[in-house]
Design a protein around this nucleic acid. Structure first.
Lengths: 331, 331
DNA sequence: GTGAAAGCGCTAACAC
DNA sequence: GTGTTAGCGCTTTCAC
């Protein structure tokens, strides 16, 4: 029983006598043999591992996506490792570099900031890399994106129909496509409806509850407060909601609220919150599929897939006494 | 400039002339040199990586813990990778084996089922392994545990004081210490208060919203329904709540509800839900510290740290018209 | 069909 | 102080 024959057997290669194969298999079972993956990685250059870099590992949105991606990858023998950049572009760059040093075969990236210098180059260093709802300038990689304009547009129109004329939005900063396109869609829809774009009704900052809380306090404390607020991210929404609670403001009587991305909080509130939804699991699955496809055929042209978002009116928006509504509209 | 001198410089070893050191550093900067960690791992036997095996990566509870553990590990140069066992003991065993094959230096385990055969052996194969709120028979490893009895006991007593005599609990199955000790504490406290333990008021199953939903429907649809329900896990709680919503039952007027572990849902509900709380970040940090300590001194005796839980009465429990209360008790 | 041997990129023991 | 060399465990030619 030589060392190379054993390797052949364990890698299921042909041209090994059946009797020998049996013996090797038996022996490896008895000894509990497990190949050293570090050695294999060094020899073959592949690790059978895929990384998922998220900007906030504690955000259940990423967790849902990761779960779906993992389910799609693991039947193909790839392990998914989730790593946290903690919303820090510097740390993120370092993290991705380490993942490459560890020879991960693939990378799914929801970058903290798309404008981080060198990101595109870092990604192209991987055999396969997929952008998840991010648009990195200069990157020629596969991407799964959400069409945020669909949902935001519908939300704004819904609020308009209810009579709202002062609709505010709280969004992330300019470093992420999601925030940018949500803001763009917000503005475009306002103009389409003949409303003016009022910068005082727009707040942007880090994607954290704190930002949402602060923004909501500023908006609601202003001389001419909004009658509706769209929170452009689940973390921002928790902040907005905590501010609304702290200020004792009634929803939807005094202010209408729209969240982005369904969570337990939005779904199980009584009544549930209006939400701009999307299929997070589908997002993760698709990212995994793009990754697998690229690993299989490295030369295929980059694919950009755009998945829909939608608006669900529920219990957190109500008619406003604005110009547009005469009679009361039942929610 | 020889290959071993370069290695010495880059590993910050002494006995290298300053001038040479400078030159090597400069060259490595220019070339963008990054050591191949797979090769280093093979040579040294260590990978500088730690795994965190969770039973449900989409559960924000684990995400919070992971985030805290990561923050504690990364300053020490360890990367934390989160991997999902998807509540499947078989998959979990496979996953841990792979992590060992990848030569991860450490492991934090919140096993799906503590009774999985061979778990203790698998863990002892790692240079360092920490159990996170799990009690694996035969494992001689470090552990961070939560004292669930504290919080559950307080919750049951609180409900008793409010006049509740039919207090139900929905818990996980017997494969996790958390579920077991919560059930034990529930029963012990009932007996301590002179109440009988009624099996019809106890439901157990997989830690999923579905279980919670089903259990709540059974409990509330019974001939003698409970006046209060304790959900022994955040996932179960979402299920219990969805059932309560679907059945149109008022909280806390018709039934009092207690959740385990604070989430956005429990904190931001109006009014907030009563909750058995604990410091999840502290749990993660402590796990990381135990891991680092063991990596530093492999021979130290195993440490078991127990962290407290507590009960917070808020808006989801109300007096019940039971035998115990005459006058109305203000919440 | 099987074995011997080279080499992946790195570190560490040993010579100089 | 620095260079030479062996070897970590695996896969993969290349002989036989």
């Amino acid at each position: 029983v030589s060392i190379s024959t054993a390797s052949r057997v364990l890698n299921a290669q042909p041209f090994v006598k059946n009797e020998v194969r049996e013996r090797v298999l038996a022996a490896s079972k008895v000894l509990g043999y497990r190949p050293d993956l570090a050695a294999r990685t060094m020899r073959t250059g592949t690790s059978g591992a895929v990384g998922f870099v998220v900007s906030d590992i504690a955000n259940p949105m990423f967790a849902t996506i990761a779960k779906a991606a993992d389910s799609a990858l693991s039947p193909h023998g790839y392990a998914l490792f989730v790593a946290n950049s903690a919303n820090d572009p510097v740390h993120e760059t370092e993290l991705i570099a380490t993942l490459r040093q560890r020879r991960l075969d693939g990378l799914i990236v929801a970058a903290a900031d798309e404008r981080t210098p060198g990101l595109a180059e870092q990604m192209s260093a991987f055999p396969a890399a997929v952008l998840l709802d991010r648009d990195v300038p200069g990157a020629r990689s596969d991407a799964v994106l959400s069409d945020h304009a669909l949902g935001i547009g519908a939300a704004v129109r819904h609020l308009f129909r209810l009579g709202h004329r002062r609709i505010a939005i709280v969004a992330g900063s300019r470093g992420q496509r999601a925030s940018l396109t949500r803001l763009d869609a917000y503005r475009a829809t306002l103009l389409e409806l003949g409303l003016s774009y009022d910068e005082l009704l727009v707040r942007a900052g880090e994607l954290s509850p704190k930002t949402g809380d602060l923004a909501a306090r500023q908006l609601l404390g202003a001389r001419r407060p909004p009658t509706a607020i769209i929170a452009g991210n689940n973390q921002l929404f928790t902040g907005v909601l905590s501010a609304v609670r702290a200020l004792g403001i009634k929803v939807p009587a005094a202010v209408s609220l729209v969240a982005c991305d369904e969570t337990d909080l939005t779904a199980l509130h009584d009544p549930p919150f209006d939400v701009v939804g999307r299929d997070l699991a589908e997002l993760g699955r698709t990212a995994a599929q793009l990754l697998l496809a690229r690993l299989q055929s490295p030369e295929r042209p980059p694919t950009r897939l755009v998945l829909p978002t939608w608006f669900e009116a529920r219990g957190s928006s109500a008619p406003s006494g604005g110009l547009g509504t005469k009679g009361r509209i039942e929610p």
